[in-house]
């Protein structure tokens, strides 16, 4: 990882104590921020693994959660940046549309499920079904990912600097997978693909955006063999 300057605390940082204020009031306050708000920096303390923290945001604000989160943190995010200074529970960033979610620790299962856009960065590992049904989101994981990741992935990019578990990309459509380490097994209709210059460029861009110092040429690309796109009885066993 690249050396990074110590995070500076913005002058106008607003702090919310989740345990004191409660989830409803916390999310309500964040939802009330408009496109031109000047209160762009928010910090949530004492998250204590609560579910649905900072979900449904739709403003260019930056929310930092100081601790670990439960299910669906940053769910359906639009525009905002959500930093999780801890580990993230299941379904973090599900259906993300735009903006960014950065997880300092590990991510549980279904990370970025069905996400349509934006970027999710994991500095630790991501569990099973990472990027399941992804529809355009980009996910960059510094560590490893678990089994059945990107199941039915439709579009977007999943970058894994470590290893991938069983059945990567099962029944995937047009999503791309870049793995630097090993892949335990490929799912149905997922195959190794040629890494062309345009792919290296996409990969480099994503690694840069995530702040990970990895050499794109060390990665292998995987994607759909497109054999299951239209039913054929000879492929019946693969369904």
């Amino acid at each position: 990882m690249r050396p990074q300057p110590p995070p500076k605390r913005p002058l106008n940082m607003q702090t919310i104590d989740l345990t004191e204020v409660g989830l409803r009031e916390t999310n309500k306050t964040l939802h009330a921020q408009s496109a031109d708000t000047n209160q762009t920096a928010w910090e949530i303390v004492n998250p204590r693994g609560s579910h649905a923290i900072a979900c449904g945001l739709d403003a260019p604000i930056e929310v930092t959660v100081k601790g670990s989160t439960g299910y669906y943190c940053g769910g359906m995010n639009q525009q905002a940046t959500v930093n999780i200074h801890g580990s993230a529970g299941p379904g973090t960033g599900e259906n993300i549309m735009s903006g960014k979610i950065v997880i300092e620790g590990d991510a549980s299962q279904y990370l970025g499920a069905t996400g349509h856009g934006g970027l999710i960065v994991v500095k630790g590992n991501a569990s099973s079904r990472c990027g399941i049904s992804m529809k355009g989101v980009n996910i960059v994981v510094q560590g490893n990912i678990g089994h059945m990741s990107a199941f039915m992935g439709q579009s977007g990019n999943l970058v894994v600097c470590g290893d991938a578990g069983d059945a990567l990309g099962d029944s995937c459509y047009e999503a791309r997978f870049f793995v630097r380490g090993t892949v335990k097994s490929l799912g149905a209709d997922c195959e190794k693909k040629e890494m062309r210059p345009e792919h290296l460029e996409i990969l480099k861009g994503l690694l840069d955006e995530a702040g990970f110092d990895a050499d794109p040429s060390e990665f292998t690309r995987y994607g759909s063999a497109r054999n299951l796109y239209n039913f054929d009885v000879d492929n019946a066993a693969a369904y």
Partner: peptide
């Protein structure tokens, strides 16, 4: 894709309610 079983469903409902206020 992101929940299974009744306990997860409760959390999913919570998330949807939070998003829609």
């Amino acid at each position: 894709p992101d929940w299974t079983g009744p306990d997860d469903l409760e959390i999913k409902i919570l998330e949807l309610r939070e998003i829609t206020g």
